[in-house]
Simulated assay, not measured.
Amino acid sequence: MAVSVIAAARAVLVAALPGVNVSYKIPEPLTQRFIRISRAGGPRGRDIDSPRIIVECYASTAAKAADGPRAELDAYAAADALRVAASGGPWAGGWITGWEQNNILDFPDPSQTQHARWQFTGTLYLLT
Rank of each mutant, 00 (worst) to 15 (best):
Q112G: 01
L105Y: 03
D80H: 08
L105A: 09
Q101D: 09
W95P: 00
P108E: 06
R83N: 04
W91L: 09
A78S: 14
R117V: 07
F107I: 08
A92D: 12
R117P: 13
N103D: 08
Q119M: 15
A79P: 00
Q112N: 02
L82G: 08
A78G: 06
G93P: 04
P108M: 14
W91S: 04
A78W: 02
I104F: 05
W91H: 10
Q114N: 08
W99S: 04
Q101W: 01
R83M: 04
A86I: 02
R83V: 07
L82T: 10
N102E: 13
D109I: 03
A92K: 14
E100W: 05
R117Q: 13
V84H: 04
S111K: 15
P90Q: 07
W95L: 11
P108I: 14
A86D: 10
A85F: 04
A116V: 05
A116S: 15
H115Q: 05
G93L: 12
I104E: 02
Q119H: 08
P90M: 05
A79D: 06
T113M: 03
W99M: 07
W99K: 07
D80V: 01
G94Q: 13
Q101V: 01
D106C: 10
D80A: 07
Q114A: 15
S87T: 05
T97C: 01
L82V: 10
P108L: 15
L105K: 15
S111I: 03
I96C: 13
A85Q: 10
D106G: 06
D109Q: 05
D80P: 05
G89C: 07
I104K: 02
D106W: 03
W99Q: 03
T97W: 00
P110H: 07
L82S: 02
G98T: 04
D106P: 00
A81I: 06
V84F: 08
T113E: 06
W91E: 01
A116L: 02
Q101E: 15
A85L: 05
T121P: 00
G98E: 09
F107G: 00
N103Q: 13
D80Y: 10
E100G: 01
W95S: 12
P110A: 13
V84I: 15
A78F: 04
F120L: 03
Q114C: 00
R117C: 12
G89D: 01
A116I: 02
Q119W: 05
D109A: 09
A116E: 08
R83T: 11
Q101M: 10
H115K: 00
A86K: 12
G88T: 05
N102G: 15
G94I: 06
P108Y: 11
D80L: 04
Q114Y: 09
W95C: 01
G94T: 12
W95R: 14
Q101A: 15
P90H: 11
I104T: 11
D106K: 10
D109L: 04
G88L: 04
Q101L: 05
H115A: 09
N102I: 02
S111N: 14
G98H: 06
A79T: 01
N102Y: 09
A81H: 05
D109S: 09
F120V: 02
I96Q: 12
I104H: 01
P110T: 14
A81M: 06
G93S: 13
D80T: 09
R117K: 13
P108N: 14
L105P: 00
P110I: 13
N103V: 04
G94E: 08
V84N: 03
H115T: 02
E100H: 10
W118E: 00
H115S: 07
L82I: 09
W118M: 03
